[in-house]
């Protein structure tokens, strides 16, 4: 039985979410099937990337401030958090988190008479997202911390001369400048976070009923067809598109952050590979 390409898209377009055809194709693989299924898996990469970045942004800001603070009670924990997550492979972090989450009591934890279920924490959508969130927070915090330290001294002195101090100084001068200075590096972090999401289903977190990410399906096809020359380039193609999209979006924000500066002082985004973590 052969399907037209449109029928294939209808059958497998949302397969990664468990919608559509139950069984994955087993014989007579077509390029259309590979494009559709791998694209369907990309939804997971987008899910992990977008949510981890969105939550991570806030924790990263808090960590950067904590690392820059004078009190060792806030500085030391932040330094250790950043060191542990930046100094060890994400791959190991996934494994470790998965093993730790599996150890939670199966029946759930009793808190004030309420039973909190724990089984869902070992699923990729929750567990892996949590690890990615902590990981990107650490990397971004280091970027923002660096930016915080490179704010021109004159800007802060000028603010104080105008009588802007304390929280006002931070909110109106320090924080916007920190974002502006750190943004090109943060763009790179965002791109490589999306790349890192491909590790999820290769590291501890199992895919249930064959619902995985783009690389999971590409690997499935490569295993079944013994031909790596079609599925992997397709993943590559999708990720180049995703990278372009992220660059475009973050470029817009960068322009907004730099809007008041003269042309020659605006900072540009340059793609710098920092790759696997």
């Amino acid at each position: 039985m052969s399907m037209t390409c449109w029928e294939t898209v209808q059958a497998y377009g949302l397969r990664s979410l468990g919608i559509g055809e139950k069984l994955l194709p087993r014989t007579d693989f077509t390029v259309c099937q590979q494009f559709t299924l791998i694209g369907s898996g990309l939804l997971w990469n987008i899910y992990f990337g977008v949510l981890a970045l969105a939550f991570g942004f806030f924790l990263a800001n808090a960590l950067a401030l904590a690392k820059a603070s004078r009190s060792p009670w806030t500085r030391k924990p932040a330094e250790w958090f950043i060191f542990v997550f930046r100094g060890s492979p994400l791959f190991i972090q996934f494994f470790l988190a998965y093993e730790a989450l599996v150890m939670l009591p199966r029946a759930g934890i009793e808190i004030f008479g309420l039973t909190v279920q724990t089984a869902w924490t070992t699923r990729a959508w929750a567990g892996a997202l949590f690890v990615l969130f902590l990981n990107t927070s650490a990397y971004s915090a280091e970027i923002f911390y660096g930016a915080l330290r490179s704010i021109p001294k004159g800007d802060l002195e000028a603010a104080e001369a105008y009588g802007i101090t304390g929280w006002q100084k931070f909110r109106r001068i320090q924080w916007p400048t920190m974002l502006r200075l750190g943004w090109p590096a943060y763009t790179n972090e965002a791109i490589f976070l999306f790349h890192a999401t491909t590790l999820v289903f290769f590291s501890g977190f199992p895919a249930f009923s064959q619902q995985g990410d783009a690389l999971y399906y590409a690997n499935y096809f490569a295993d079944k067809t013994f031909n790596p020359f079609i599925p992997y380039p397709i993943v590559g193609f999708y990720f180049i598109l995703l990278t372009l999209l992220v660059t475009l979006l973050f470029g817009r924000i960068n322009r907004h952050l730099n809007r008041y500066l003269p042309q020659n002082q605006k900072s540009r985004i340059r793609l710098r590979p920092q790759v696997i973590r």
Binding site: H195, T198, L199, L215, A218, N219, P228, F239, T243, I276
Partner: peptide, 20 residues
């Protein structure tokens, strides 16, 4: 080559491609 595409894709790809 390595910009824009997750490097793990290259790892999985090259091992099979080289072997074949």
């Amino acid at each position: 080559m390595v910009r824009g595409v997750p490097d793990i894709v290259f790892f999985l790809f090259f091992v099979i491609a080289l072997d074949q």
